[in-house]
Design a protein around this nucleic acid. Structure first.
Lengths: 139, 139
DNA sequence: GTATTACGTTGTAATCATTACAGATTAGGT
DNA sequence: ACCTAATCTGTAATGATTACAACGTAATAC
């Protein structure tokens, strides 16, 4: 497994490198399904039984502070985490619960008409029923 | 106090009229500050000490199901409620916690490029530091 | 090379918003 | 003025997240 990639990312941001941080970062990079903190915890705990959920929250917290992961609040009941911060939006299917990436133009840091506010994050959240659920394929 | 307005709104939507529903609806109409359920509860309890927080949640739930109020999940820690569903977006100041209305064009039900999904809600959430906090006026 | 110090991790115990539930009450039609 | 289903209330549970204190680790100073 190539942990070098993630070691470099952490170092470049001046974040101390630890196995837990590497694992969370790798997991998010390799599982682009907007997992919850608990999803991450349960999966990583398999290979590292001593992992604490508090650590997962701590790691997610620092990674998001440095912009390495994006926190999604689309579901309203729990936070979801997205690797990186490539500019894209999200669609939540209220039937199956999946979150789909949406690529929409015209929603950016500079598109806010009200002047004087300093914009640091932009989130476009769409909700409805996804293609698969409409066809009866989804959950 | 003109409860007639809100009675009409509820009746038009086939929602049974109760004092609690009228009060919540009126409060949201008259206080466009995106309050939390607890804000609503604490304020309305002053004039109606027997009000239950569960009722506030129930009322907000039915009002949002009928599109009479919009649920905002911008803060990530608690839901906030907005009267009506006039098409506008929201800016959360991470310094003072206020949510400011934003009027941006080009973010609508029909602007989603991915085809086949049925879009029922669109939320544009911006985060950063508001004008007042930048000037040192805010909290 | 060891002591010191700062930072990370862990596990448990709180917190806080929200939901579940059961019993009392009420709205709206008859 | 009933009757019945829907609503309201209060308390107890849930579930995500945070607080905190003890322990581990790694770098630095002596």
């Amino acid at each position: 497994m190539d942990t070098g990639k993630y070691t470099g990312i952490l170092r470049e941001n001046g974040i101390k490198v630890t196995p837990q941080r590497l694992e969370v970062l790798r997991f998010l990079d390799e599982n682009r399904v907007h997992p919850t903190a608990d999803d991450i915890y349960r999966t990583l705990k398999k290979d590292n039984p001593s992992l604490s959920k508090t650590t997962v929250y701590n790691v997610l917290d620092i990674l998001s502070k440095y912009g390495l992961v994006e926190v999604l609040t689309i579901s309203g009941t729990e936070s979801r985490y997205d690797y990186g911060s490539t500019r894209h939006q999200h669609f939540l299917c209220t039937s199956c619960g999946r979150i789909v990436d949406i690529h929409i133009k015209g929603l950016c840091m500079d598109c806010m008409p009200e002047k004087g506010h300093k914009v640091e994050e932009v989130h476009g959240y769409f909700k409805g029923t996804c293609r698969d659920c409409l066809k009866g394929i989804g959950a």
